[in-house]
Design a protein around this nucleic acid. Structure first.
Lengths: 124, 124
DNA sequence: CTAACAAATGCGACACAATTGCATTAAAGA
DNA sequence: TCTTTAATGCAATTGTGTCGCATTTGTTAG
């Protein structure tokens, strides 16, 4: 199952890079100046998540948002940071802060999804 | 808009108290031994959230889960804790750990939704 | 350059969570 | 008991995300 380069993939990545924020499928579709099917965009986004290019955030509106994964020096993906959803401009951005937590004994954590909601610097 | 006591409200609260965990609408409906409409359960849950009796967690499956709000000594609601969703038994519980975080200047936080996913103590 | 294979796409239908409008029922106070 | 209006049931609707299947297109081998 080798991946192929397609105009759709490039366009989606380009939009996300330009925005510098997490975006939902419909926001991406609006921003792309091409006619791409909804299902295709979802499939592209899901593949990017599988490949570690993007990571998925589920906001408290129940919707999925996608943002570029930042890789550290060892090229290891690290997405254990907080996300911030602004109530005013309705965007989601990745905060630099790492999430620090401890869990009780015998619990093991595979994944985290932490979203803070409020007013961002541009809207305050 | 004064609230009234109804069998539905009592039943929903009872189920959540007994479970001691966060539950979704369909899980609550299954557990209640009455025939209550889906929309009604949602309305009851939403009212409880408005009144601070329950708090709402949105898991990374995009679904809403509801749990009793724990109030501290001053009867002030404090729901700034982590939630843990077990992949094995598919339940969500409130962890005792408070979420500690800092946000960049000029950001203000109104609400948080932090869910850790993994294997809980009963399933490991 | 062409042919062949399989990944990617478009389209429509579908599944599911959650909400809403409206008519009806029932809780609570007078 | 009567009145008021919050709460409920029902059906329809909205919105997000997925899936099956036929078609297109990227990639590689010859």
């Amino acid at each position: 199952m080798k991946r192929r380069n397609t105009p759709t993939k490039e366009a989606v990545l380009e939009v996300l890079k330009t925005a510098g924020k997490a975006m939902s499928q419909d926001a991406i579709e609006q921003e792309i100046h091409m006619d791409i099917n909804r299902a295709t965009i979802y499939r592209v986004l899901n593949r990017f998540c599988e490949d570690g290019v993007l990571h998925r955030i589920v906001a408290d509106d129940g919707k999925q948002y996608f943002a570029l994964s930042d890789k550290n020096d060892n090229n290891k993906v690290s997405d254990n940071h907080f996300h911030f959803k602004c109530l005013a401009c309705d965007t989601i951005e990745c905060l630099p802060n790492e999430v620090s937590f401890t869990v009780p004994n015998a619990y093991s954590v595979a994944h985290m999804n932490c979203v803070l909601t409020g007013i961002c610097k541009d809207c305050s």
